[in-house]
Structure formats: C-alpha cells, structure tokens
Nucleic acid binder design. Structure first.
Lengths: 170, 170
DNA sequence: TTGGAATGTCAACAACGCTGACATAAACTC
DNA sequence: GAGTTTATGTCAGCGTTGTTGACATTCCAA
C-alpha cells in the first residue's frame, strides 16, 4: 500500500489509481481472472480432445450463423491456416456445417449443427455460471466499471468488432 | 438491447445486469480485452523468439526474487515440465540466475540478472502504458469495479496467490 | 539406513499459433 | 472474350507451450 509517487496537487481528483503499483495489481488481476474465465469451458473441452480455439470458433459461429471463414478470421484475429485446422475437425465431427456461397462460390458459410449447438450451450452455460456469480458478488455498479475498463483496453479494430457484436440482438 | 427475462419484482435493485445477454457481452468483452492486454508485450517478445510464457516467468520472478521453481509453478498454474523449458532458455540466455538452495539443496532459487531486469522493465512499461490509458479513460470508479469483478472471477486458490502478491510491497 | 516424499530435469507428444505454396473462383483490364 | 490480378479457402510443415511419463537428487522419517 505504499506509494512512491507524489500526491497530485494539480487536480481535484486523486490520481492515485494510476500509480505503477495500482497498474501492476490490475495486470496481475487480469492474468489470474482470465484463467478463471476459461477454466470451466477448458475442463469440458479437454474431455473431447478440443481446445480453446474450438470454443472460440463455436461461440462466434453461434453468434453469427452463416458467417464466412474470412469474417470469422477478422473476429478471432488468427491466420486462416490456423482457423482452418480447427474448422476441419469441427466439420468432420459433425458440429459445424460449411455451405458453399450462392452468390460468391469462393465463400463458405458456417453453421452449427444440432450437435454443435448442444456443445455450445454446454460451454456457454459453464462460462456464464461463473460470470453470473462474479457479477452478483460485485454488483451492478462494479460491472459497469468492469465493462468500461475492458472496452478501453481493446485495440481499436477489436473494439469495432466487439461493438458490432454487442449491439446485435440475434 | 432486448431482454427475454421477466423483470425482477422481488428485489429493490434491478437484476437486468445478470441477464444472459449482459453476461454474453461481458464474456466477449473479456475475450477482446485480453487480446489488447497481451498485444504490446507480445510484439516485443516475438523479436527475440520468446513467448508469453517467458513474459509470465520474468514478471513473477521480478515480483518475488529468490522464489523457487515450485513456488512459481503454483502461481503460474502450469506443469513444472512446461515451466522448465522456459526457464532453461532464460537461464541459457543470461536473463535468469538459478541458485541451489542452501538449507534445502533440492530447491533452486530464481533471480533476474541485470539483463533480465532490463527486459522486464521494457515489457512492463509497454503493458502498463496501455493499462494506464484504459484506466484514465474509464476513471477511478470504473477501475474499482473492474478490480472487484476480476477478483470475483478468480478460482479460490488463484485469489489466494493474487491477494498475497497484491498485499506485498516489494 | 532404508523407503518414501519432494524437488527439479529430460524426452516425447498434442494443441494451436505461424509462414509458404497452391487451387479455385471472381473481378478487373484490355 | 482472353489474360491478369485479387480474394477465398486448403494443405504441408514449423515453433511455442501446454501435457504425461520416466528419472536423478535430496531430504526426512520410520
């Protein structure tokens, strides 16, 4: 709790929350929290030889059914080669369906099958349960702040993708 | 912005922030924000054939100089074999020093060399810069909420490790 | 002093990032 | 319309970093 920085005499509002010490705590909190964030889905996934990449693909295909591979690429921020491996296994296992585009035959449109939807629900439920507990613990005001900081932490293009998804009610 | 859940008539406080829709937005925000969170250090690391694992090791050795391999394992939550590979390269490259324990010769105590400290500072500065900008954008109240939700999201044992680190002023 | 527990190392494997090379389809140029 | 360029998606191979299994060393306790 020691502060090495001088008190800010130039502002009516204390800037103590911007000290290196406070920032370090935030960084470490982010690290540990993200582990908790992914822990429950990870446990489910490892039973079926899938990983986090499969979860992400399933999540966003569910969010935007009919999306193209290229679209998904932009959202996930990985290379198409990397995504392709994941998609191939999901298609082989009958969780995802890939339909050739009608107007542009180069494109593949992606959909979850019933089996895929079932897994998505299972993963989402697990992740939401933890999130709900955390939200409930922290209360609505804290949640608003949480969201505000997260959004400020994103890269500009990621914030774009996020905002588009956020304001979409499927 | 549509809500499928009934309004909570049983509570004075609105529970709308606990709807599945709100939770999903939080989950996606967490996903995108974490990418931003690691983006700057990642760029530095890839220049020198290191990865995120090296960053984590360096960070926590800096936080707790003299820590043992076992200790680090518990904090990082990986297997010792995985950590060992990372530590070996860091030691070979002269960023980390490993000293055999005096009271228990099985243990190895880990320290950053000057070179290691230099890299740590470079990585931290990059990460803190983004964090500081996000904090500044969001304001002190939002930051308090951010921290509150993150802490509630951790696993119990991770919260232990975090709290111990948080309350340590090196 | 001997057997078991704890600590750390070495070897091999899987998930999932990456780049490079390529096939196909569409779009653009002339 | 023919040829070139651009866009989309697939296949092959590599690196980082997670995993489990086997093992050497050290400590401790029966």
């Amino acid at each position: 709790m020691s502060e090495i920085r001088p008190a800010p005499a130039f502002s009516g509002e204390s800037l103590l929350f911007l000290t290196d010490e406070q920032l370090r705590q935030g960084i470490e909190a982010m690290f540990f929290a993200y582990r908790g964030f992914t822990a429950d889905p990870d446990r489910i996934l490892e039973q079926m030889a899938y990983g986090r990449a499969h979860h992400r693909a399933i999540h966003f295909i569910n969010r935007a059914p009919g999306t193209t591979v290229n679209n998904l690429l932009a959202i996930l921020g990985v290379t198409k080669q990397s995504l392709n491996r994941v998609l191939r296994t999901l298609i082989e296992d009958g969780l995802v369906e890939s339909r050739v585009g009608t107007v542009d035959k180069r494109e593949r449109h992606l959909f979850l099958t019933e089996k895929g939807k079932a897994l998505e629900t299972r993963l989402s439920d697990a992740q939401r349960a933890r999130m709900r507990a955390a939200y409930k613990d922290a209360g609505p005001e804290a949640v608003a702040g949480f969201r505000k900081v997260l959004e400020a932490m994103m890269d500009a293009d990621m914030r774009h993708a996020y905002t588009k998804l956020r304001d979409t009610t499927s």
